[in-house]
């Protein structure tokens, strides 16, 4: 069963913090969402956002406050946000159990 939460790994949290230039004791808010588009229909969207909406799902982990709008949450429940620094390319990686297909370049998915 898909867990009804979104998880950020310690490594991904570190890179979010590095990206914002914040010290480890400061809280960082990260908006995680889904956008229409990409070959398969849905793409992931990450942005630094200090303002949460009333309807946002809010999750705190490893000093990162993750904000997810209600509609995106339906497509993201159970997702693990990691950071890959491997030879195949650096960047944030979404492991989304809801994604049934992804496009060739891996940036979009369908459910």
């Amino acid at each position: 069963m898909t867990p009804l939460t979104i998880t950020i790994t310690e490594n991904a949290a570190k890179h979010v913090r590095d990206f914002t230039g914040r010290e480890s004791e400061e809280n960082v808010s990260l908006r995680v969402g889904v956008k229409g588009g990409g070959c398969s229909g849905l793409t992931y969207d990450l942005s630094i956002d200090s303002e949460s909406l009333e309807t946002d799902k809010v999750i705190e982990e490893h000093g990162i406050t993750i904000l997810i709008d209600k509609k995106s949450y339906i497509f993201l429940a159970g997702t693990i946000l990691d950071y890959s620094g491997g030879l195949n390319g650096k960047g944030f990686v979404f492991s989304n159990p809801n994604a049934k297909t992804t496009c060739g370049c891996g940036t979009s998915f369908s459910v």
Binding site: G36, G37, G38, C39, G41, C103, G104, T107, S108
Partner: peptide, 8 residues
């Protein structure tokens, strides 16, 4: 850039 269905 990408749009739904572009790859196909």
């Amino acid at each position: 850039g990408c749009y739904i269905g572009q790859e196909v």
